[in-house]
């Protein structure tokens, strides 16, 4: 079946929400998302990972002690990914989670107010470039502040649409 048309289906099928300067939400490209598993308590691999995967802003995100997420909008080919994994050598293991977790961007003047309806984190204390794992309502999410009023939420694919729907619901007053 080499002629079979193989189709990728994104996890979020709904159109972006809002576009006011108060609040907007969009699904980010399902490009590349790699889970790096270092040894907890051992060396900080951020610099190594930036060397391997690129030093762009918000490329490497902390994901609990000794773990990181590598995020790119563009897909990484299988062979490139394998080559990168090999270069990690014994410092860390890598697991491709490009399909396992999806990214949702929320932005706008009211974005902190909106997120405060779900998470107990004091977002004032999260600097640009910082990440945190938390509960948003009843769903576990990884939050990264990518700009002053812009956050990326990384969520398990299976919960993606549900998180989207909940935020869209909470957004009604903005």
């Amino acid at each position: 079946m080499s002629d079979f048309e193989l189709i990728h289906r994104p996890a979020i099928s709904t159109k972006p929400v809002g576009s006011s300067d108060a609040f907007a939400m969009k699904a980010m490209p399902e490009g590349t998302l790699i889970h790096i598993l270092g040894k907890p308590g051992a060396e900080n691999l951020t610099a190594t990972l930036q060397g391997l995967f690129g030093g762009e802003a918000n490329r490497i995100r902390t994901f609990g002690p000794g773990q990181w997420l590598v995020v790119r909008d563009e897909p990484t080919s299988r062979s490139d990914m394998q080559a990168l994994f090999e270069r990690l050598d014994t410092r860390a293991f890598a697991v491709d989670q490009t399909h396992g977790r999806i990214r949702i961007e929320v932005a706008g003047r009211a974005v902190q107010s909106l997120l405060a309806k779900g998470t107990a984190i004091d977002l004032n204390a999260v600097a640009v470039g910082q990440s945190a794992m938390t509960l948003m309502g009843h769903i576990s999410v990884h939050i990264t502040r990518v700009a002053l009023n812009r956050f990326e939420l990384i969520v398990l694919r299976g919960f993606g649409q549900s998180l989207w729907d909940e935020i869209a619901h909470l957004n009604a007053d903005f």
């Binding site: 907890p40 609990g64 002690p65 945190a132 794992m133 938390t134 509960l135 576990s140």
Partner: peptide, 8 residues
């Protein structure tokens, strides 16, 4: 267990 956090 910090289940919905760092998972430590």
């Amino acid at each position: 267990h910090h289940t919905s956090g760092c998972r430590r």
